[in-house]
């Protein structure tokens, strides 16, 4: 309201201090749910990244396995070897704690990569559709509509199946993870495209875009330099929520046996292995990987919810 310039502050604040003082950081600090959820996510991320350093055993090195250790219940010494395992062992004597750490790695890698890929495809197609309009928009959005009529898991299984058919058998196990990423990404890009298109349609008619056109800027600089930064906040929210969904999708596919191979088990694979022993009393083989998956997906989801509220100016 006043036309005079603000008097410059005594000491210029550093970037970090500025961020810490921002409304965004403030609302984070005052939301216990967000703080706890992000703590859980950070801890799970760290243990996944440093799994080889933390895990007491390398569950995928057959030389370290002792079949005699099979079915050791958590926290009690094995009847034959007297070894104790924190979360018990599975049928082949693998330490469940270690398999969870390694499984978390695969799950997180697949989830994050799939969301990133879906984000890139969706954002670009959404921007192009909104900016150019006409038949380009119709084509892109119809493809998206058609894809939405199939359940995501079905699309992922279809892509997975086709990929399996065309890759040579000797590469199948190595390729499985990447096929999984592509399958999940291709079933997930639609929501990014829709949200970006909706937001970009609003931004496109704002006067700063007209001003850029007036200067003579071309379509792509306007799309990526001007419009994109202004539609990123909803994308960020969706990316977080999709991450939880992607991790669950990966677990579902792996549970169904079309995901991560047993040589590189993800949390889903572990759950599939574990469910075979559920009714014979070895509950821990299923229980702990399932709990980890639950904690991860729930924390990421809660973080996404908080982010949506924090970035929504109407709720502030």
């Amino acid at each position: 309201m006043t036309e005079t310039m603000e008097t410059p502050k005594a000491a210029p604040k550093s970037r970090m201090a500025k961020f810490w003082d921002s409304d965004f950081a403030w609302s984070f600090r005052h939301s216990p749910v967000a703080v706890i959820a992000s703590l859980v996510v950070v801890v799970l991320l760290l243990v996944a990244v440093f799994a080889p350093l933390i895990a007491p055993h390398n569950p995928f090195d057959p030389a370290t396995l002792n079949l005699m250790n099979g079915f050791t219940p958590p926290g009690t010494p094995n009847a034959f070897t007297q070894e104790t395992f924190l979360l018990g062992t599975d049928d082949q004597g693998r330490d469940v704690f270690s398999t969870i750490l390694y499984g978390l790695r695969i799950s997180l890698f697949v989830g994050v990569s799939a969301v990133l890929l879906a984000l890139i495809i969706g954002v670009i197609l959404g921007l192009v559709a909104a900016y150019f309009g006409g038949w380009i928009e119709t084509l892109i959005m119809r493809i998206a509509d058609v894809q939405l009529t199939f359940p995501a898991i079905l699309v992922a299984m279809l892509i997975f199946g086709i990929a399996k058919g065309i890759t040579p058998p000797e590469y199948r196990n190595e390729m499985a993870i990447y096929v999984l990423i592509i399958a999940i990404a291709l079933s997930d890009w639609v929501q990014f495209a829709r949200v970006v298109r909706g937001a970009a349609l609003v931004e496109k008619n704002k006067e700063y875009v007209q001003a850029a056109r007036l200067i003579g800027r071309g379509s792509f600089p306007i799309m990526f330099r001007h419009i994109l930064p202004n539609v990123l906040s909803p994308v960020l929210v969706i990316a977080t929520i999709s991450l939880a969904l992607a991790i669950i999708a990966e677990a579902t596919l792996s549970f169904l046996g079309v995901g991560a191979p047993p040589t590189q088990p993800s949390l889903g694979t572990l759950i599939r292995i574990g469910q075979g022993f559920l009714f014979s009393g070895e509950w821990w083989i299923l229980f702990f990987p399932a709990c980890t998956l639950l904690a991860l997906a729930l924390s990421v989801n809660l973080l996404g919810d908080w982010l949506r509220d924090a970035l929504n100016p109407k709720l502030r």
Partner: peptide, 8 residues
């Protein structure tokens, strides 16, 4: 309010 790009 809309003629300047808020992110620039």
């Amino acid at each position: 309010y809309s003629s300047l790009n808020p992110r620039m």
